[in-house]
Design a binder for these strands. Structure first.
Lengths: 214, 214
DNA sequence: ATTCTCTTTATTGGATCCAATTTAAGATAT
DNA sequence: ATATCTTAAATTGGATCCAATAAAGAGAAT
């Protein structure tokens, strides 16, 4: 009998994925120390895959490591939040511009279906589904490096989202903007789509900032 | 007595830095397998810091890892080269736009001094000095996430640079464009500076593409 | 000769062990 | 009572050991 589902294959990746999710979800708060032994026990593995997972998450910017002093959950602040959304606007508008000429109806249908889920799913699923909606459209641009970059920015943004999500009536407007974006995509109207996306991301940033304590 | 200078502190970082440099320099060719034991012996450390270093470089995109089959130097191709330079234009023009209002004369002087070195230094130093020149200007924008992103893109681009650098009379034009960029910065002319930077990066991409075998 | 299978070998992934460093606590002096 | 020095506990970094997997090679059957 296995312990926590970490076993079976690629423990490093497994531990990294679970830790990342717990950091994004806010279960592990910013600044909280991440003791190797504790994590190892919790997942039923040795300290080694934990060490590699922490190293990986450090490279992704979710944890900070200090030599001989261990790892902790990376800090968050308003400045970083603003920067993430600036970078999202830049990268995602560019991706969308190049995706639109390559968009198939079937891909737009898939995005619309995800948007359908998004509108009925519980609020905890918002971050992941929202990311899938956006990525589904962008993937048509066929730029792996750019897509990986955007994916990371979404994960980074989701840390703030989970903090703010409760007092947020943001979801309603977000849904409307997603529908507008899909319509522009169906028309293959790159200029309009880009403009909708830009304000969509900027407004998301502002809403999160307003909900951020401090 | 120590072996290869890897000891002393933070072996993982040390090994990662040296491997990264050897990949960028082209000493380690694309696709070449990276055997843990071999690298460990070469640097006089055990396999463990090597494993963590490889994991780090994987996250940075310089090596590819397949479960139970080991690591190899990441592939390069024309498509990736083009993507890197697209992303550079996007990120660096944005960084420069926000840096220019914050530029001090002393910072511009520092960039000019680096450009001076660049024009006399041996060709092997071009990549590193070129990066320092650009980063010195951008740092004024005070956006750590963006700067880290740009830094990584420069390293990725340098892999192609080292391949092409020999048959390249690119350096002369690059120097002229750097001088023009500095002049625009001194005038605090954001629009002109951005335009110079955009063509500067685009032309670099084209020159590298032309020199790429295949 | 070729292909398939079995065995051997090389190599990675994970666990445990040891050393070095940092943090915390406790004793002592002022 | 406070500050400082000494010592002990906790924790990380690195090395070695063992197990699991995949590549390579030898041998047999067609």
């Amino acid at each position: 009998m296995q312990t926590a589902g970490a076993k079976g294959r690629d423990q490093t990746r497994s531990v990294a994925d679970q830790l990342r999710e717990r950091i994004i979800s806010g279960e592990l708060a910013a600044g909280q120390p991440l003791r190797q032994e504790t994590i190892a026990e919790a997942y039923g593995v040795s300290r080694m895959p934990v060490r590699e997972a922490l190293r990986l998450l450090q490279a992704e910017g979710f944890v900070e490591m200090v030599r001989n002093r261990g790892a902790s959950v990376a800090a968050i602040d308003a400045r970083d939040l603003a920067e993430i959304h600036e970078m999202r606007v830049l990268a995602e508008c560019f991706a969308l511009r190049h995706a639109i000429p390559e968009l198939t109806e079937s891909r737009i249908d898939r995005a619309e279906s995800i948007q359908g889920e998004l509108e009925t799913a519980p609020i905890e699923a918002f971050g992941a589904l929202n990311k899938r909606f956006h990525m589904t459209l962008y993937e048509a641009c066929a730029r792996p490096r750019l897509l990986a970059h955007i994916s990371l920015l979404h994960d980074a943004a989701d840390r703030y989202l989970r903090i703010a999500i409760r007092q947020l009536d943001y979801a309603v407007r977000s849904d409307r903007e997603h529908r507008e974006l899909l319509a522009a995509c169906r028309r293959r109207d790159a200029a309009a789509a880009q403009e909708i996306l830009r304000t969509h991301i900027e407004e998301a940033g502002k809403a999160l900032l307003a909900a951020l304590p401090g």
